[in-house]
């Protein structure tokens, strides 16, 4: 009986001590964040995925996150402005844009200039989300006037619309191309802006050491290799 009680106490204590840190990850890196969490090795990690802007809102409203991974500089600097970070955010990965088209590229799209064709159904991410912001910047800098059929709530739904055949083309991240049943048309590095992914530990974390260790882990060669597998650049 006593042994049973003892083991119960141990289990409960262990349960309490082994509480995972929670990493809020931008939706465009959901799968990569899961892999990073399982390869971390310094304690359990749970990943909560949401759009970058929603992550910021969650932090502002007091969600119990320990680490935040956002998909653009704007959201990272908003976190800085809110004074909720333990350290300054670091860039741990980059990404670029690509055009998603149906397999076989039936409309023979070769670059963003082709997206100006009014006969094409083109969907873009809404400018409220990072992918949409990058897209808008890129199209403006290139002087290409695209009339989108829809400004989708996330880069994932842009991909879905192309995948379902509802849209002829959509602008997504390079890392998205390999995931969907779509073909990708490269956008040259000279044209596509660089999407930078920022990581930072939160000052409100109950496990500041683990949180900091996770941020540090993201720039290790092991993590870099893993990110590269998903198509991210350092």
């Amino acid at each position: 009986m006593r042994r049973l009680l003892l083991s119960l106490v141990v289990v409960l204590a262990g349960w309490g001590g082994e509480a995972p840190i929670i990493v809020g990850g931008a939706s465009s890196m959901a799968e990569a964040a899961d892999e990073l969490a399982s390869d971390f090795g310094q304690g359990p990690v749970e990943v909560s995925v949401a759009g970058s802007q929603i992550l910021v809102s969650q932090v502002r409203e007091g969600a119990p996150l320990d680490v935040v991974l956002t998909a653009d500089e704007a959201t990272a600097s908003e976190l800085v402005r809110l004074q909720v970070l333990a350290t300054d955010p670091i860039v741990f990965a980059t990404n670029r844009l690509a055009i998603a088209v149906a397999p076989g590229n039936p409309h023979a799209i070769s670059g963003i200039e082709d997206l100006a064709n009014p006969d094409l159904t083109v969907v873009l991410a809404a400018p409220q989300v990072p992918a949409g912001r990058y897209t808008a910047e890129m199209l403006e800098a290139a002087g290409v006037a695209v009339t989108p059929s829809s400004l989708e709530p996330s880069v994932r739904s842009v991909l879905a619309k192309v995948q379902l055949g509802e849209a002829d083309a959509g602008i997504v991240y390079r890392t998205d191309i390999s995931r969907g049943d779509v073909a990708g048309v490269e956008i040259p590095d000279t044209v596509s802006p660089v999407a930078e992914y920022y990581a930072a530990a939160l000052a409100t974390s109950a496990q500041p050491e683990t949180a900091a260790a996770f941020v540090a882990f993201l720039t290790t060669p092991a993590a870099r290799a893993l990110l590269a597998e998903f198509g991210f650049s350092p």
Partner: peptide, 12 residues
Amino acid sequence: TVTFAGNLSGRT
């Protein structure tokens, strides 16, 4: 609506 008709100001 957002799933089927998308999101475009002035139209959907």
